[in-house]
Write a protein that binds this DNA or RNA. Structure first.
Lengths: 267, 267
DNA sequence: CATGATGTATCAAATAATAATACGTTGTAG
DNA sequence: CTACAACGTATTATTATTTGATACATCATG
């Protein structure tokens, strides 16, 4: 496949990871042959690799159906991530306060390769399941968080992102026109926050404010999601935006002592 | 090491996983040589494996310090887990309601190999960071959730667990005496819930109710954590316990069509 | 009962991972 | 200012490990 024929590259490990990545929202548990189909790997390889993952506790295996699925070890990995990302510890208490304040769902979003990943979420109302769990991934250009982040970038980087980042539809209302998205980002530059209607879920309004680093540039955002059936633009501007932007602005990312602010996560 | 000399076992993959597991609460980012020390693997192996994990996007690498740390891919794995565990979708909306009701932190806890893993958490008050992030792992016998779960087991299995499961201290107040823990479990059998004081965090009171499957046996629990400085036993019994047990009882795990209720996760 | 799909087990062949070694850089101590 | 130690990186011959073809077992279907 895409194996670098590099001597510093362990193909078997990469194949194993490919099996881990085969599980997602749509494929929550898979048989051996389904894994073969989805990964494109050899049957024998999948057999050995999946078995290894099973023996190592990274996959559960149903004794009856023989199907594999993710194990709780996957959550322990998330836990290790949470400890490793300084922004999480920094933002968590403030987002908890914000969540209590406005009584609506708030999220911490991070940028990763043109996509937004929700790092943690504090749901306050029943909502679509997808909107309540961490680790969800969306094209950044289609999210309030992505646009809020972009609004802090210099014009050149912004233009590149607006040209290169992916866009695909999540709901019928998803905006795919890059010029229109560019205008939304311009709005965010002026306002200090971004707002979207039904981009990820129908009738969901998202409001996001960027979390700037010492240089003023953002790679993360605080996002609030509310129901379009219960909130209109005026009430959002009055009751949510101030608290949201305050929260985002109060999160001060320390530039690493000795080094310029190099962030491992962004871009 | 502990390699099964099995032909269905891929050693390189297992070593790669060992590197992933090296990251935890205490070691959030590691250099090459730190990884060598922590994993016990050969320097060259770690070099190749870590490099592979980096190329595959499972580790970030700081360009300046050359240190590795978990990537956002670890959260995407958590996301796949959430989709794969039917209990999560079942419990999430009810826990959100519960969280609003009582205004305190509620968790979904799962049993895994004598330990409790917090599957998701809905924090409502600032608290110790460790208590706000998913994927945390604690010895089941030391947690309200673990005891609530055990209280639903038949006496024989319960006795085995009380004998075999690990116990180690998380706070100075942690109870390590297995006879005393057995009495706490007996209390839970009578009451339908379990309550602990300062077992995981100082001054934290935890209350947990078991989530029973069709046979009446539990491998998961709803847990609520409150501050011992603000809550006493009476108020907890009056204001939290009813809502908590109601919530837990309202979560009905469907036995899989055609199969007896075989759960891949437990024991 | 035959057929096809799937999970499991085995084994010879050779590819792909190994670990020793050497090199370049950085930071510290003498 | 030099020497040394610690670390990350690169290279290579050797060999062990992974490979994938094959065969067998089990189960569901018509």
């Amino acid at each position: 496949m895409d194996n670098s024929p590099n001597t510093l590259f362990v193909g078997s490990l990469a194949k194993g990871l490919k099996i881990l990545r085969a599980f997602d929202m749509n494929e929550t548990e898979m048989s051996l042959s389904e894994l073969v189909r989805k990964t494109g790997l050899d049957k024998s390889s999948v057999q050995r690799l999946a078995n290894t993952l099973y023996l190592e506790g990274f996959l559960y295996k149903d004794g009856v159906t023989r199907r594999f699925k993710p194990s709780l070890a996957w959550l322990e990995m998330a836990n290790a991530y949470y400890w490793s990302d300084p922004l999480v510890a920094l933002a968590m208490p403030k987002l908890i306060d914000l969540s209590r304040d406005i009584g609506e769902t708030v999220n911490l979003a991070r940028l990763s390769d043109g996509h937004i990943i929700y790092v943690f979420r504090l749901p306050n109302t029943r909502s679509r399941f997808a909107a309540t769990i961490a680790g969800s991934k969306l094209p950044a250009l289609g999210t309030a968080s992505g646009r809020a982040i972009l609004s802090t970038w210099d014009p050149a980087s912004r233009a590149n992102a607006l040209r290169d980042w992916p866009t695909y539809a999540a709901t019928p209302a998803t905006i795919l026109d890059r010029d229109q998205i560019a205008r939304e980002v311009e709005d965010a530059v002026r306002n200090g926050y971004s707002i979207t209607h039904g981009q990820a879920l129908v009738n969901e309004i998202s409001i996001a404010a960027p979390i700037r680093d010492a240089s003023g540039r953002a790679t993360a955002a605080v996002q609030c999601s509310v129901s379009g059936l219960q909130w209109d633009h005026d009430r959002i501007t009055a009751n949510i935006v101030p608290a949201l932007t305050n929260t985002a602005n109060s999160i001060l990312i320390p530039s690493r002592a000795g080094y310029p602010n190099a962030d491992m996560n962004d871009q």
